[in-house]
Simulated assay, not measured.
Amino acid sequence: MPPIPSQYIRRAAEWTDAFDTINLTYDGRFLRRKVLTTTRGTRFLVDLAHTTSLDQGDAFELEDGRLVEVVAANENLLEVTGVDLARIAWHVGNRHTPCQIEAERLLIQRDHVIRNMLQLIGAEVREIVEPFRPEGGAYGHGRTQPHDHGHVHDHAH
């Protein structure tokens, strides 16, 4: 049976009542065309007009109108803490490393080079496994095409 087509994304605030979910890593949430399988086993073909960055709570709209909610999957991360977290965050940002910023910690993808650099500047670093939801950048969805400000779903219902 061929996968069900999906050409539209609904952002988190634009929908309710998904029939299923799909767990995707940070890298997996950046796509244009790919066959995916939901938690319950439904196969669908994502076929978007542009490469798009998805966030936790966004949904794929299938051709038949059903919605599949995007869930951030657990990933191998580094938890970064320290007394001068703002300075540590600057060093992470200076290396253009995706970063989830929280009040008491930073989360980044595991990278031994960045880990060593952070430890050299006094950061405490430990390996963890959690969902990864880094900051999206100045225009929200930081990995989308330069002139795409999140207006992915543009058809009428």
Rank of each mutant, 00 (worst) to 15 (best):
V71K: 14
L31Q: 07
D20L: 10
V71R: 15
V70S: 04
D55C: 09
I4S: 06
G122R: 05
R33E: 12
I108R: 01
E79Y: 00
I128G: 01
V92Q: 05
H153E: 10
L36H: 10
K34C: 11
P2N: 14
A156P: 00
E124L: 01
E127W: 04
H155I: 14
E14H: 08
R32D: 01
A89Q: 11
T16A: 13
G28M: 07
T52H: 03
Y26V: 04
N116F: 07
V152Q: 06
D27C: 00
G142L: 09
L45Y: 13
T25E: 09
P146D: 11
L77Y: 00
V71L: 12
R11W: 08
N94E: 13
T51I: 10
V129D: 05
F44S: 03
L107M: 07
F44T: 02
E63K: 09
E127C: 04
T37F: 04
H112P: 05
R87W: 06
D111L: 05
P2A: 10
G93A: 15
V92F: 08
E69F: 00
T39K: 12
G57C: 06
L54A: 07
S6A: 15
E127G: 09
Y26N: 01
W90E: 11
W90S: 02
A123G: 09
E130C: 02
G142I: 13
V83E: 15
R105W: 01
D84K: 13
T37I: 15
H149L: 14
E63V: 03
T37M: 13
I121T: 05
G142R: 05
P3G: 08
H50T: 12
L107G: 00
R143I: 09
A18F: 09
N94Y: 11
Q7F: 11
E14L: 06
I22Q: 02
Y8D: 10
R105L: 08
R29C: 07
V113Q: 13
A138D: 07
W15V: 04
I88Y: 00
R29Y: 04
V35W: 03
A103P: 05
P5D: 12
R10W: 04
L62W: 05
L62N: 08
D84P: 00
T39P: 00
E127V: 14
R95E: 12
R133Y: 02
G137P: 03
P2E: 15
G57T: 10
L118K: 08
I121C: 06
M117N: 02
V35L: 02
